[in-house]
Design a protein around this nucleic acid. Structure first.
Lengths: 381, 381
DNA sequence: TAACGGCCTGAATCATCAC
DNA sequence: AGTGATGATTCAGGCCGTT
């Protein structure tokens, strides 16, 4: 194996043992299936994989201001058919499973385009799903044409090597402590990767179209690996997994085909400063007051469809509709829009403007929203 | 078809038309695959399905020789189980797809145990996934062993019948208005079904193990169906879909095998009060407004031939011609084409781009269009 | 300096009607 | 059925220049 030509060795500190394999903390260039086949079986503690999503995009998409959306149209995301994608998925998952230690676990991230196929194949190959974890994006791209719900999340599958592998690593207490002392849930909230974290080339163009945020990887690594563990990423890209692993005192192995990605990943990982062991702690995402749509009050039964809303002085009435809009004078819109309309203003905070009548007394609907928020306290945003 | 023995007809008001099919607003007793096969093709507008996912649950998951699938403790049985589940899933999805109108959509809810297999099979059968929607539970069951993340969500797949079915129902504006005027995301937050909504038997035991909350179904129904639509639920259970459909002015068809569930669902649906039609009207945006050619504004005298149009910043001027086109630089075309031309763009909405000057102030011509529409509404053709 | 406003961008399976 | 014209549609956040 002519590793010298194809392996990028990175000077990281995690493992200086004389028996450390030569591929540890390196980026191996090449096709992930054949490269994984060349590594020894049962040699990694964890795998994080961000495979192509097979997006199957059609024509161009423009924003309402006519600017063109920079689509993921790279060759590596093109497959001829579902069957071709399935064959590819089966091949890399099989090779990955061979490398996993008996009590290791694997994470795979995807979207609705591919994640169902990935999950079914994982089950077929004997992986045992422990959780599916939803990455909720604070700032997803809108649905510009208004034809679907805003696609605001991606899905990760976390699985052990087999159903009888019970001794996998899960840092339950660390996760609980990081989540205000309540169990870490299967839905995580993080911003997408942007700003200074996003790798750009000399012309200011993003180096990789789908770079993942380090915060997401950090929670993956902190939850299911231990310091000194080895984490394999067969679709290394620009090396988020490697950067986070090094920072958090874990070893990594990356496999990547494209030279430009390898170059960027190398520079990136070289500049990472590993944290002290006692600092290895996950920061909780910032948590604002959860947004509560008015429709939720209707759905929760706090306001009945058909009920009358009125302003504090009883000058205007609007009626609540089942979809969470309110109707006034033949027009229906949100509590804010109708509130603005009746007053002849540009804008209005419907939450503090509208009231319901309860036992003859007016109650501002903002109080009802607080009731919902209290109920939601068990499920923090 | 001996329907009298197997169909529970419910007196609901949604459709009293003499041509309404006999199965409308009924619960059909029996196996969903064969029962769906007995209904006419392309007859329902939407489907909501909450299929079983526990491989031990129900008789559908026996091997072909009728032997019961054993506990899942080795790889071979595991494969057998998945294969049986896949065959069952394929069968009911195929039957369901036959019943769906060309522009109908289907919702399927599941957990990580089954949703990946369901999603992959849906894609294989030609369904086109529009969104995967995450139901985040405010109050999920804790993970008692502390060996995994708290399983705090379930996944719904929303799909059209095929990739080229573009005219499916999606009440974008209603969803947006119901969500404080920002578009509805793919992650929804609802409590699980409990309290008074949860159906209990005489001994206080829950009637159905996985009764879904009505609020969840309400958002499903409000987002992707219209009043008067017909919604099929092939795994009717205790009839949440039927109860919500009736309350929201939609028709339903339920298929269910177990008598006790049918009994509970019947009583439940009979006690539902439908909402008034005017409460159920759907907030529609500009898409639903009648088209008004620009020429109509000229004909109506709202814009004079020869008048100057300008953009909001006064960078470009075009002159109105009597035929409803506008002229710029020796070229005459529609407000949209000229608007695109001057900006060097592919497309442009001329209605929001161009303005007229009135008393020294600019007024967007979209407002003039609204005047025409109001006049049309006052004096309908 | 701080505040504000304009501009840019992100894994996207993103029309419909008349002729 | 195919073609061409119409015209509907965006949220959060980072960055940068101006006030």
């Amino acid at each position: 194996m002519s590793k010298l030509q194809t392996v990028r060795r990175l000077p990281v500190e995690q493992d200086r043992s004389p028996v450390a394999p030569e591929w540890l903390n390196t980026i191996i260039k090449g096709d992930c299936v054949s490269r994984m086949a060349a590594l020894p079986e049962k040699s990694v503690d964890a795998i994080f994989a961000d495979p192509p999503y097979n997006l199957q995009l059609g024509g161009d998409l423009h924003r309402p201001d006519q600017s063109k959306v920079d689509a993921v149209d790279d060759a590596w995301d093109q497959f001829e058919s579902f069957a071709a994608y399935d064959a590819f998925t089966r091949a890399w998952l099989l090779a990955a499973r061979r490398l996993l230690k008996p009590n290791g676990t694997i994470w795979v991230i995807g979207s609705y385009h591919n994640i169902f196929r990935v999950g079914a194949i994982m089950q077929d190959l004997g992986f045992w799903i422990l959780n599916d974890v939803v990455w909720r994006k604070t700032n997803p791209m809108p649905n510009f044409r208004g034809r679907r719900f805003q696609n605001a999340h991606e899905t990760m599958i976390w699985a052990s090597k087999s159903a009888d592998a019970k001794a996998y690593t899960f840092n339950y207490d660390a996760m609980k402590a990081a989540n205000d002392d309540t169990q870490m849930r299967s839905d995580w909230l993080f911003p997408i990767c942007s700003g200074g974290e996003r790798l750009k080339d000399g012309e200011g163009q993003k180096v990789h179209p789908t770079q993942k945020p380090e915060a997401l990887l950090a929670r993956v690594v902190m939850s299911s690996t231990r310091p000194g563990d080895t984490i394999l990423d067969p679709f290394f890209g620009t090396g988020t997994t490697g950067a986070v692993a090094k920072r958090l005192g874990r070893n990594f192995v990356g496999i990547e085909r494209q030279d430009d990605y390898i170059e960027a990943a190398t520079d990136r990982i070289l500049s990472v400063e590993p944290l002290d062991a006692d600092v290895l702690r996950i920061s909780a995402g910032k948590r604002a007051e959860p947004r509560v749509p008015f429709a939720t009050l209707v759905e929760a039964g706090l306001v009945a469809p058909g009920a009358e809303l009125t302003d504090a002085k009883g000058r205007w009435q609007a009626s609540v509709r089942a979809d969470g809009t309110i109707a006034f004078g033949g027009e229906a819109a949100s509590i804010h829009r109708i509130g603005a309309k009746v007053q002849g203003l540009e804008a209005c905070n419907g939450w503090t403007f509208w009231h319901v009548r309860e036992n003859g007394r007016l109650r501002v609907i903002d109080e009802l929203r607080q009731i919902v928020r209290d109920q939601m306290a068990a499920a923090p945003a």
